Computed example of a mutant assay.
Amino acid sequence: MVITGLLCGALLGFVMQRGRFCLTGGFRDMYLAKDNRMFYALLIAITIQSLGVYALIQFGLIQFKAGAFQWLATVIGSFIFGIGIILAGGCATGTWYRAGEGLIGSWIALAGYMTMSAIMKSGALMPVNDSLKPYSVPTNSIPATFGISVWPFIAILAIITIVLVVRQVRKPKVFIPSLPPKRKGLNHLLFEKRWHPFVTAILVGLIALLAWPLSEATGRMSGLGITTPSANVLQYLVTGDSKKYINWGVFLVLGIFLGSFIAAKGSREFRFRSPDAKTAVSSFGGGILMGFGASWAGGCSIGNGLVMTAMMTWQGWISLIFMILGTWTASYFVYVRPRTKASRKTAGSYQTTTA
């Protein structure tokens, strides 16, 4: 049954590659370009998953326990993770699917991410990973905190999402010229036509929902998750212990790579692209920060930002906030400040020349 993880991951990798579903770019564009479309797309995926998963729970088909909320680890880890994804050029899932496109920088970031995740979870930094666990509260579930049903919270999320999406859709369209289609029918839709981020988000939400029963059928009581499975890949390669480390989640992340590769080859977007030395160092450093932060926070932009938010947990929503703050902080130092310095130098040079 673990092979269903490969299928689920391949679907996710295919959809994310063709739809360019990149949360790193989405969070960054909220700050730099005041473009919220990808964030609204994330809300669509969260809403669909939340509705579906809690319906499955209502019918007794799957189980979920929110557990305790390790608030300090979530806050600090998510902020560090947000910084890391800007330096790496992609979040955890984005790094896997960009690696499937042949982007060598993503391979480098993935190496740093997997290595640090493994070190934090089972290596020399386990004491660091566990150091913030005492700073927790017993209730992670938002509805349980207020002593009411989860459905009012899901309804509020759905209403907010619908309002934001409708407002976005009603905005004047910007005409983007494109070449005449070279393919017909399904080939054109799958591999050539530009996918709308909201359509992509619906598909991502449905795949995230599908992951729950498929994963729980193997005894893994969770949905999509990237950090621990990524660490498990490296842990298996080092130890050879398949019983301990090969599971549904490992097949999931390998499937993301496979699905993205198929999508990139089909759309003729696959090619090996090597980064320059500076980008390579930044990618590896970003991957290290991603692994460190996600391990502390208990999840990445998918595990916390998509799944735990849908489960209406404090961990998910607070993690999402501090992830975004981390990306904005890194974006300022990586993109805004260098441009500001450059413009000042240019202005100073102009004044000196004309004086």
Rank of each mutant, 00 (worst) to 15 (best):
G205V: 02
L325E: 11
L254I: 12
N187E: 10
W212D: 05
S319Y: 02
L206K: 03
S274H: 06
F251P: 04
T227P: 04
L190P: 11
V204Q: 08
F284L: 15
R268S: 14
M290G: 03
F191H: 07
T228H: 01
P229A: 09
G293K: 06
S295M: 05
T228Q: 13
W212T: 03
S301R: 01
G316Q: 05
M312F: 12
K243I: 04
L252F: 15
L254C: 14
F261A: 14
T313K: 00
G219E: 08
Y245C: 09
L224V: 12
E216V: 02
G326R: 10
T309Q: 07
E269S: 12
G266H: 09
G249F: 02
V281L: 15
S230F: 00
G219Q: 10
M308N: 05
V307S: 13
R273K: 15
G259T: 04
F272S: 05
W212H: 13
S222K: 01
L252C: 13
I256S: 09
A277R: 14
L214T: 13
F191C: 04
R268D: 13
A277W: 04
Q315W: 05
A263E: 07
I262H: 03
V204P: 15
M312R: 03
A263H: 07
N187V: 00
V204T: 10
G225I: 00
L289V: 08
S230D: 13
F284V: 07
L209F: 13
G293C: 11
G205Q: 09
L189P: 00
V281P: 05
L237I: 14
W317V: 08
F292N: 09
R268Y: 11
L209N: 01
K193T: 03
M308S: 06
G316V: 06
R194Y: 09
T218W: 11
N187W: 01
R268W: 01
G240I: 06
N304Q: 15
I321M: 13
I318N: 00
S295I: 02
V281S: 12
T313C: 10
L203Y: 11
